[in-house]
């Protein structure tokens, strides 16, 4: 840009027409993309709901699986999912939160910490069937737990741990460092500071992360197929070493049967699973909004 030759009007050729067309096309592509993705989802949900809803009744929710579609129910799968998820969370939440606290609040910056950090993020992206193979080798075979709820829960715990660690770290990072400084300057130790100030403030965020991690695990099928969670279970698991089935496996089982009635049953199972997932995600969103709301009020 030289100052000697200032731009003259004739140098500008705005081509308004072409720019307007390109702008419109860009918006159009965006709208079409949304319509495709949303449309598929709506079609899927409507199809599943129309086929499945008529089957959902008290009998369906309280019966075990059966060879006859009209007698088959989903009780074993619901009980199995609930039992397994409780144990999964009981194992993964304390370990995940403690690991996140250590990484975020204690670990000094070093190449080892960066290495661990990167690999935790990588672990969150490992295909779930790999965890299934790991669970099959370690829990089912080596530790001889068999194809039990315990083995399934521990496998799922491994699967959700990285997600919990990352989410908890984010929640801890969101706590302003001025709060830590204030506490430490009063002669509090690091652990007192974390326990009294950091964790209470990060708690809703940690909970949100855990719920989202759990809702991921509930929909997982592959790892449990791998460790051999049974598909026909005519009882609810009572001890951690009982055999079990879960919702997605039950659904998978029904879809692979030849009779059309079972396909509708599968749709009914999907509706139940979707409802569980929607409920959990709503709770997570509510929690997050409540936190966001209070922090906004704090600033104002």
């Amino acid at each position: 840009m030289s100052m000697q030759t200032p731009a003259t009007q004739s140098m500008f050729q705005p081509n308004q027409m072409m720019r307007r067309v390109m702008g419109g096309a860009f918006v159009g592509v965006g709208v079409i993309s949304i319509l495709i993705s949303l449309g598929m989802l709506v079609y899927l949900v409507l199809d599943v709901a129309m086929r499945g809803l008529p089957w959902i009744d008290w009998q369906f929710l309280t019966s075990f699986d059966s060879r006859f579609a009209e007698r088959a129910g989903i009780l074993a799968a619901i009980a199995g999912t609930a039992f397994m998820m409780t144990m999964t969370i009981a194992v993964s939440l304390p370990i995940g939160v403690m690991a996140a606290i250590y990484l975020q609040e204690y670990a000094k910056e070093s190449w080892l910490k960066s290495f661990i950090q990167i690999n935790i993020s990588n672990l969150a992206g490992v295909p779930s069937i790999i965890y299934g193979l790991l669970g099959l080798t370690i829990f089912v075979r080596y530790m001889m737990m068999g194809r039990s709820v315990l083995a399934g829960a521990l496998t799922m715990a491994l699967l959700v741990l990285p997600v919990i660690v990352v989410a908890t770290q984010e929640a801890l990072r969101a706590v302003p460092s001025s709060i830590r400084d204030a506490s430490l300057a009063l002669g509090a130790t690091r652990s007192q500071t974390i326990w009294h100030h950091v964790l209470p403030q990060a708690f809703p965020g940690i909970l949100t992360g855990n719920i989202l991690a759990a809702s991921r695990a509930i929909g997982e099928t592959a790892p449990l197929v791998t460790i051999g969670a049974l598909t026909y279970v005519p009882f609810t698991p009572e001890s951690p070493l009982d055999r079990f089935t879960v919702l997605p496996i039950q659904i998978f089982n029904w879809t692979s049967k030849p009779q059309a009635e079972f396909h509708d049953l599968a749709a009914a199972g999907i509706v139940v699973l979707l409802l569980v997932l929607l409920t959990m995600n709503s709770i997570a969103i509510l929690l997050r909004q409540r936190v966001g709301g209070t922090s906004r009020r704090r600033i104002g």
Partner: peptide
Amino acid sequence: VEVRRVVGMVFQKPNPFPKSIYENVAF
């Protein structure tokens, strides 16, 4: 930790804990 009990500090931006006035002082 012991030093900081004997030498207290007030920061640039007021940073009370998100707790009651009483708890802020009592902590």
